[in-house]
Amino acid sequence: MSIVEFRNVTKAFGKVVVLREVDLNIEVGQVVVLIGPSGSGKSTLLRCINALEEINGGDLVVDGISVKAGRSNVRVIRQEAGMVFQQFNLFPQMTAMQNVAFGPQHVRGHSRAEALEQARALLAKVGLSDRGSHYPSELSGGQQQRVAIARALAVKPKLMLFDEPTSALDPELRHEVLGVMQALAEEGMTMIVVTHEMAFARRVGKRMIFMENGKISVDGDPATLLSNSENPRLREFLQHVH
């Protein structure tokens, strides 16, 4: 069953066309790794899914709802599709616990006590039980990103979107975030991950998509594509990121 369906989607910023008639189906439970050169449209593709960017042509259906179906439907889509950003974007005035409890309370309408209960469980899940009362400024980048993942999960999404979740982190902090993501994938979460972490793509990815110039140019099995792709530009790209 498809949870995300791009149907001939076009997206432009002014005159700059960023997505060109993209067709793409993502199945429930799939872990899709999205790669491609800078400016090829990876972030834009991801941000169209939760309607942070508005599409200009075609249709995009997420969990049965079109991104063009109006504001309240868009809010439902956003609740179903959690997003993790490169820059974490934690709410700085709230502790880690409050960040995670925020969604359940204000989006799902749970009581404060319930929301905190869930937040505690999620922080434990990302290995930060002892950091609940810390503010984002008091956490390392890796810890902040794990809080951000917990915050997104707290709304109980069916799908998770990751836009270069480890790119802002020092290499030695990346594994803690990647570990959390791997655990999530193993639980069966549907994930779309923009990343340059090829080892992660090989280990965790079920499908790899290579984007170029607003189009999907290669779509296949990560292990196969990583070891011997027939596409010369993908081969060259992989040489640069390795």
Partner: peptide, 18 residues
Amino acid sequence: VHKGLREAGLALGLPTWK
């Protein structure tokens, strides 16, 4: 205020006023 915070809030499914 960094626009990432606004996006993070919207991405949770909050209405703009919240």
